[in-house]
Nucleic acid binder design. Structure first.
Lengths: 326, 326
DNA sequence: AAGTGCAATTGACAAAAGTAAGGAATGCAT
DNA sequence: ATGCATTCCTTACTTTTGTCAATTGCACTT
């Protein structure tokens, strides 16, 4: 009878009311700093159950955990970078122990944490394309920013990476609770004539016009190596790449090759590329450049010098390299 | 020599660079889900040191931890409350085990977590006064909302609680990175004539005018008992209180007694009170009511019925009582 | 009414995190 | 240089948290 009484008592009032137990446990744990034992006592369940509740709370995304952006924007290196390139702000994440693709994830995560604070209701945000941008969208915590429009800055392309330009803008807009304006056109078409006719198409024209209305932009810098995304995605052949590099290309921005001053380099692709004109990206309220890596340093510097970037997210190693860059 | 080599190696590159170690540890722990052992290995320090780093990170406020507002605004009770009173949204925090002042802390904490999402750049927020509002301001994580103005809705009064109306608005505006417009006048003056003359004073007039410009408001409901703040703070005597109660007062809002319909009750204090007119608080973009307790239920209902509240923060017990209130 | 499948819960054990007392390095005054 | 105070770090120990296989209660079949 002892056991029976125990069970009965435990069952009914213990289960406070469905999901509520999870919420109560999470509240006590995260807001009232009770340990699992105390919570278990109050909810009349075993501590193991509390562990489960808390895991569920985390899995359901009830818990938001982030680091204050000021931590990354106010230390020495960030301030130095900001001042050297006359930026509004720089966000420097710690270096990864070994520098591989994990770099991109780190930086993307940092940017994802910062981005919501850089946006306001009513903004029109232009978004470029790339692994970094995708990782950013992926890492972003869902929020809702009122009356926000996200526009795709570059046409679409097939890629071996499993994400396209639309996926970047779509995912980003979903995470931000924003309206999404896609650019339903390939990034590169086979001949200049077709490109100009496409640009006349009412739908495309409107979509391109929307790009001119952007007051903020989010982009990364691509490399000019054979493994570069522009090559792998079939936008440029290796020969073209070599030709652009020969004429001073040191990076890629929104599908366009740029020189050390950030100026787009004219070439065989220019006419055939469906993308925002880089000149539209100068002098925006915000130009957020998110990139890492030694091989992107020159391009990132160019994006600053060219006036595209007002805000930067990168890691300490890259930031140092940018400061050392003459 | 082994020890010497070890020490040298450990000292220099181990200490990554001052405070940075703290940031790196926090990043790895909170963003990369590494455990303290792994972090200790990577930073070449003992695990105990990592514990210290993480504690420092928390103490310095580098870590932001909160619960998604949707958790509290989308469950059954919150939706029911919202619908019954035609609110825009309701935020219901879990009940405290035993209902004392801890209730206020809980609810204030919830409101503090929600408030930043309810504000936008350019808003003019009117703020009332009370223990709840103060606790809210105290619990609020510092942020910065651009071009936000916080106005004090009620004049100041001496209180035994250690906080005044200005302290509420000042603290709140500091936490929100907002501009603060204080109302430099006592809440209650001794005779009606002085009150009306004060209202003519240019400075006061401007401050009162600013109140009319508020598009959002934050307030609580006070009780009509002898322990009520209006009495304790000397705004009303117990006799006056009784008189107001006799004429239907069921709560206090911005220093004014209201009836079940939320209408302010005329009486000896009306003329002498320096405060926003309640009619200005009807139909705002947002009216955030933050209160808890059985004894405030009627007043809270009145604030809804009267059209002051568009958003509510309370606890489950109070919400249930409001739903049961006829 | 007994059997079956499922999800929630539990106790016992393992891992991780927190604490406190002691110990090296650093800087400063003597 | 020596001693002293301070800061930061470490080792050894305690508490808290996480894991997992086993159990319980419950809805639904047979």
């Amino acid at each position: 009878m002892g056991a029976q009484g125990y069970n009965l008592r435990k069952r009914k009032p213990g289960k406070v009311s469905g999901d509520n137990a999870v919420i109560e446990a999470a509240w006590m744990y995260y807001h009232e700093d009770l340990n699992q034992n105390e919570i278990a006592k109050r909810l009349h369940v075993s501590r193991a159950t509390v562990v489960n509740y808390l895991q569920e709370a985390r899995e359901l995304g009830m818990i938001r955990l982030s680091m204050r952006p000021e931590v990354f924007t106010t230390h020495e290196l960030a301030v130095a970078l900001r001042d050297k390139f006359s930026l509004q702000s720089a966000y420097i994440v710690p270096d990864a122990p070994q520098g591989n693709d994990a770099d991109i994830e780190r930086v993307a995560k940092g940017a994802a944490e910062w981005l919501p604070e850089l946006l306001q209701p009513g903004d029109r945000l232009g978004v470029a394309w790339g692994q970094t941008i995708y990782a950013l969208a992926e890492a972003l915590e869902p929020t809702h920013i009122d009356d926000l429009y996200v526009s795709q800055l570059v046409g679409s392309m097939t890629t071996p990476y499993g994400f396209t330009a639309e996926i970047c803008s779509t995912k980003l807009s979903q995470k931000l609770g924003a309206n999404c304006i896609n650019l339903h056109v390939p990034a590169i078409v086979s001949d200049p004539d077709l490109a100009s006719r496409l640009r006349q198409e009412p739908i495309i024209r409107d979509q391109l016009a929307a790009l001119s209305n952007c007051n903020k932009a989010l982009f990364a810098i691509g490399t000019c190596t054979a493994e570069s995304h522009v090559v792998v995605s079939g936008v440029a052949s290796t020969e073209m790449l070599a030709s652009y590099v020969g004429r001073g290309a040191i990076g890629v921005m929104c599908g366009q090759f740029i020189d050390v001053a950030g100026k787009p380099i004219d070439g065989p692709l220019s006419e055939r590329l469906m993308s925002v004109s880089l000149s539209k990206l100068v002098g925006l309220e915000m130009g957020l450049l998110v990139s890492v890596g030694k091989d992107r340093v020159k391009g990132m510097v160019a994006a600053c010098v060219g006036g595209y970037a007002t805000h930067i997210v990168t890691d300490a190693a890259t930031a140092t390299a940018m400061l050392d860059d003459v």
